[in-house]
Amino acid sequence: MNETFDRLYNDYHATLFQFLFYMVKNRAVAEELVQEVYIKVLRSYHSYEERSNEKTWLLTIARNVAIDYLRTHNRRSSRWLSKFEFNKQNAKDATPLPEEIVMQKEEVQAIYHSLKNCTLDQQQVLILRYIQEFTVNETAEVLEWSVSKVKTTQHRAIKALRELLDDHTKTNLKGVL
């Protein structure tokens, strides 16, 4: 086995997969995308400049791979929904929830579902900052943003997520009453 792959896998695979999964919210897709990430990484590893942080460099590649996927996928989904408006209200994500999420409390599941409804920029910041516990500087490096943009997006993301969670709770209550 390639030494570089072996080391990168041991050091960063869990982080990479975690990030990809929460970005695309589909285990099968994340499994395929992580392979694409390694292909890109192994191809360009010789040009990797050590002045940048290896972890954030890998995450930047993963982020680009995920966004590439989402751009096409999201457009397809939204187009289908706009064509069949009647489906919009009943539209449910057919992607099965991973067992790790199913086993969680309802409020954790609710936040997982609400996360999907944040903007892509907001989701990236929330995943990196709060699920993966990256620092603001690391997040800025991965996203190739300024630190202040990370802070502003983070603030708006938390606010948006809180509102989405409230909506989610109200909808569930209506169902009970």
Binding site: Y9, A14, R27, M103, Q104, I111, L115, I131, I158, L161
Partner: peptide, 23 residues
């Protein structure tokens, strides 16, 4: 909200290291 986010679990890759390397 932040605390709930941090409770989201680690989701494991079902592929083994060897399987990924082969692919």
């Amino acid at each position: 909200t932040k605390s709930l986010l941090s409770k989201l679990p680690d989701v494991k890759d079902h592929q083994s290291k060897e399987m990924i390397y082969q692919q």
